[in-house]
Amino acid sequence: MAYMSTHTYARCTVCGQTLSRTLEFKNRYYCDVHYGLFYQNTRPLWRASILTFGFLVAALLGFAIGNQLAPERFRDTVQSGTGIFIAILPALIWIISLYRIGAQTQFQLSPLPITIFVLGALLSAAVTRPFLYNIVNLDIWIGSTTASNRLMGNILLNGFTHTFTLYAIIRYIAWDSPAFMRRTDGVMFALAASWGYASLINILYVIDLGEITLLNGSLRLITQLCIFLTTGLILGYFIGRNRFEDAPVYHLSVGLIMAATVNGFMLYASSALNSTSLSLTQSGFSPWPGLALSMGGLALTFSTVRGLMQRQNALTQAKLEQIA
């Protein structure tokens, strides 16, 4: 072919612009604009996420207090419309607060997170759900098998299917987009996909059940949400890193395995933990232990990923300043 392997043809890894001079970091090439961006923070992401988590915590406090004051009301069922509202509300709060905070802080956000959010929802409904429930019949098997098989099934089938779907959305939709310009955007897109994915899973769950109890049902939805957000955070971290570094070939796979294992384990453990003491006065079920696990996992993962990202970004900035 006529083209030569020369730096003349290098393009910016973010925007694809042909580069006249090469700005390189860990085998990725940048234009002048994006060279200064990829290690920047996606500030609205953290703030919107903390705000939404704050809302979830407040909501749970409300549930706890309400359940103390009117336990009968909280044991009652609510219709699927209310269930769907409960399922979608946290995601809406996250998306809206992401863009509002972006606007308030003059942080330019592309519409891609919304696209990813919708894609996540669509894929969960159109691909993973039919695959898991109609082809693999996972729900029937999981519901009738032993605890160890349930753990294995949750990790190998549930965990990998969910995680790969989220990975695929980001890897094949967001990866090549100029909107993916920061490491932390990887986390943002992964979270957006997870919000959409988990919200639709929850909505379909509510529709399947027809009605849910106000306390146990709502807490189960929040538990699932936290598990998928945790998965998204882990995946987002690895994708974010990998997008702006020519990482070893196994790097993403490690991320996928970690995310899928955490996803599967948390799905298993949150259900298992909810089976509590059975006695003449205790019913053998409580929604709180599983929720505590998933919220704790989410909080831990969130602070870890955020810390790692910020540390990584700071190191990168220091290195680039040193080079400059």
Binding site: L157, F164, R171, P248
Partner: peptide
């Protein structure tokens, strides 16, 4: 914009997923 690592990494992820699902189905 894609290195060899990136390409193999994508393939590896897909293979890994298929392997995990296969293992899951065998377990089932």
């Amino acid at each position: 914009g894609l290195t060899k690592n990136d390409r193999f990494s994508a393939i590896l992820v897909a293979l890994l997923t298929v392997a995990a699902l296969g293992l899951g189905l065998i377990t089932k």
